[in-house]
Design a protein around this nucleic acid. Structure first.
Lengths: 147, 147
DNA sequence: ATCATTGCAAACACTTTGCATACGC
DNA sequence: GCGTATGCAAAGTGTTTGCAATGAT
């Protein structure tokens, strides 16, 4: 099991990865499954606190670190001081729109990675992202989604 | 003039970019030219303080922000909480070694960027990096360069 | 009862800001 | 002399740590 799309029982899945499935951990994992928006810790906490009023940011931080260390979630560093999380651990790229701030997934064919010469180094993780203006913002020509 | 390798007179170059060439700014630019190691603010300050004893980190920060905003230096975000600076603003990739921590430049043929489908979005900047173990560390099999 | 998780508050690390001093034309 | 750059100290932000309280088995 290496794809989040195959996870139907989160509790079982976390257990299979050696993670004790507490309520908070299940809800955070579920949130990432249902919100493929590459949320920040802030986003996740703000959205889940209505469901779990006692949820603290500390728990969100430690849960995400736990998920990353168990390889079931990956950390995204696109902009300075803005760490985001992605449940899709398969190699893919991201497109960040400078107008609306949204981040889109970009499919990348594995052959592209093979074509890149790594000068004899031993690659383990590939990261690729693009900064630009998304389709919607280009069409609308204004900051429809801006905060 | 778009390549740092063509800069022979830093003072003139900065002026041509609309930047007042103070001693600190010249030294910081020169440092980036001579140290193609993708240094952090910390690195730059630590190394230059012996030459300019009064140099403050505030100045290093503001100078780098100035260079970035004038497009003559680019900011690298590879690892969480570790902002690095690169004088090479041409599209290229980076390889970060998890053993020794060094970052190497990776040449990327422009055709790779063209091959990536951006789903109708409008790309402006391409960022690509690889995490892995560098050639030296693979051969030595140990943390020769670790801090 | 025991052990792990949670969550508050404090500590940390990095970066920016406010403002007085110093510098350069 | 005037306008800008510098650099200290303080404030701001995002993240981790210490530790007591809570929760699960």
């Amino acid at each position: 099991m290496n794809d989040y799309r195959d996870v139907h029982n989160i509790k079982e899945y976390l257990r299979s990865k050696g993670i004790n499935p507490s309520l908070q951990r299940i809800k955070i994992y579920q949130y990432l499954m249902e919100h493929r928006t590459h949320p920040t810790v802030e986003d996740i906490h703000a959205d889940l606190v209505s469901e779990i009023p006692t949820l603290s940011k500390t728990t969100v931080y430690s849960t995400l670190n736990l998920f990353v260390s168990h390889g079931i979630v990956s950390k995204l560093m696109i902009e300075d001081g803005e760490v985001r999380y992605d449940i899709n651990t398969k190699p893919h790229g991201h497109f960040k729109c400078i107008r609306c701030g949204r981040i889109f997934d970009i499919e990348i064919s594995p052959s592209i990675f093979e074509d890149i010469s790594v000068n004899g180094h031993h690659p383990m993780e590939y990261h690729f992202y693009i900064i630009g203006i998304c389709k919607d913002c280009m069409e609308k020509g204004r900051d429809k989604f801006a905060a």
